[in-house]
Amino acid sequence: MPHVLITGAAGGIGSAIAEAFAARGATLTLADRDLTALESTAARCDVPTAVRTADLADPEAPAALVDRAWSALGPVDILVNAAGLYPSLDMADVDTASWDRLFAVNLRAPVLTTAAFARRAMAEHRPGAVVNISSGSAQRSRPGGGPYASSKAALEMATRAAALELGGHGIRVNAVSPGFVLVDSDCNPVSAEYARAIGVNPLGRPGAPQDIARAVCWIAGPEASWITGEVLRVDGGSSTGAHHLPRIWQTDDTRAIAVGTTTEEHTR
């Protein structure tokens, strides 16, 4: 059974990922900043589970986390970078400190954990899989989410770049890009109005953390063994187009033609 290291494992999506891997019998090392919240995730994972607090804004923390997980519970097979910050920050209000902290956690940390993971895996000739949690906003920003969107866009390129270089060593690197997911998180309170507006998608329901977790397990697992450098959108189809806009053509004529054709076919 694989040993899976998950950052941000106390969060809504991170904890769902932990539970999904636990349901598949993995060994887990869970990392986040808050020990109490981590413990509550771990309590729902009835597999060998270690918890580890880490502030991934610290430049030393990512490599230390990987090394510790590796030494303590044995070789890590799958790394999931789910830790991320989503501050409300307008592009006109950006300052060095907030930008740097955001990029430290959202971009530098997953890049450094991936590097540390790759170095150990290569040294021990082990294959591996990395899954970065990106966001639909990597392609399409929202008001107040520009810095976050920028960090995720960079993370998607870092995903492809790592996939390119590590593929030859049997290490796959992919990203899962969730659409809007209701996580019920205190850090990211969402107004009902926003949730309604953004939850509109072709599949007609907002995402659940479990939707993301299942995709992560799949793309990290053997069934996706020939997939690397991919950004998998898990968004109920919300990125397919402007689903919420009204139709341009509203006349009865168009419908009549369509219905007429169908009727004619039936009668033949």
């Binding site: 000739h125 294959p127 030859g168 060593h169 049997g170």
Partner: peptide, 20 residues
């Protein structure tokens, strides 16, 4: 062989150790 194994998600731990 190693490239093909990697593409299939198959391990080549021992082979790589020998080549190294």
């Amino acid at each position: 062989v190693i490239t093909q194994a990697a593409g299939e998600g198959l391990p080549t731990i021992r082979l790589r150790a020998v080549l190294d």
